[in-house]
Design a protein around this nucleic acid. Structure first.
Lengths: 169, 169
DNA sequence: TTTTTTGCAAATCGTTTGCACGCTG
DNA sequence: CAGCGTGCAAACGATTTGCAAAAAA
């Protein structure tokens, strides 16, 4: 009876509700473009950049301008539904903030795979450091760059060394 | 008797020797511009960006082109004398790698002060994480953003919240 | 109707590059 | 003198912005 859940179904997802609430709280408007961008992001499984998102929307038939994609990503970051982190590249990368869980990243310099991990003891250690310096933490980012299990031994050393020097943290 | 150590004295500093050795090993040339840039960097105490370095050189009477500054910074990063890390901004920041000591950063979102810390237990924890994932670490970066002791309570919440969302990691 | 949003294209900003000339080895 | 290095100005690529038309409240 129910139609198969499709992009359409996302209209009432938890993310959509949260975004709507956020927009209302800021007296901003709920537009088709904003909702489609949100849906597209939460359909994705991994990290992406603005350009890839824009291209994906276009191929889905929605020709939303790059400017709107950037503007909407900003809003989503502000309201906590999307997380931004470069992953070592010089341009911004984003990911849907499913479940609100925080995590950090292991980034393979050979195949570009991104592994996510969460360690409570790491979080605690950071709290200790902040206490020691009387520093109030609001955000943190730990990125470990190297070679994943598949790429160890298979990567060209000189290329990898070059990539290490190019990392943007 | 000895003349007071000045910029000139840097010509034989440990850094200069290391840079010279690196250049020789790569069959690159030891130029005045490269040495002056190195000296200027090691005179500085803190983090800086390419633009600031370029301006500083100019005001010291050395009018080295921006292109050369960028090219030389690259070389210095490659040979390990300079470290690159954005500190949350969208453009590159650099710091002299005195003593080879590794450290991480606490970055105040109000006054932009950067506190450096080193925790052996943090390094060990990262090794554990990498072992667990069979990941070979080559580089890492931990940045904690927030408010330093001086700025807690003095900062405008909405401005800080906005800055958190702008962080580039 | 009032206010916000959109798309477009131009503008920005940090950084890189091609090229002709200059300097190092 | 054979290569590299330099300065210049143009090119770049990601992101932002001003503005007039379009959509939401």
């Amino acid at each position: 009876m129910c139609p198969t859940p499709t992009t359409q179904a996302k209209a009432h997802s938890a993310e959509a509700h949260r975004f709507e609430a956020y927009l209302r709280s800021k007296k901003l408007k709920l537009t088709g473009e904003r909702m489609e961008i949100l849906a597209a992001i939460f359909q994705k499984d991994s990290h992406f950049d603005a350009e890839a998102l824009h291209a994906e929307l276009k191929q889905q038939g929605r020709d939303i301008s790059r400017a709107t994609v950037y503007r909407t990503l900003d809003l989503l970051v502000q309201c906590g539904l999307v997380r931004k982190s470069s992953l070592g590249s010089s341009h911004a990368n984003y990911e849907a903030a499913h479940e609100n869980e925080h995590h950090d990243h292991l980034i393979c310099l050979n195949c570009n795979k991104v592994l996510e991990f969460f360690r409570p003891d790491l979080e605690k250690l950071q709290d200790d450091i902040c206490r020691e310096w009387q520093f109030k933490p609001l955000h943190h980012s730990l990125q470990i760059f190297g070679l994943c299990a598949h790429c160890v031994g298979k990567a060209d050393d000189s290329i990898i060394q070059h990539r290490v020097a190019q990392i943007h943290t």
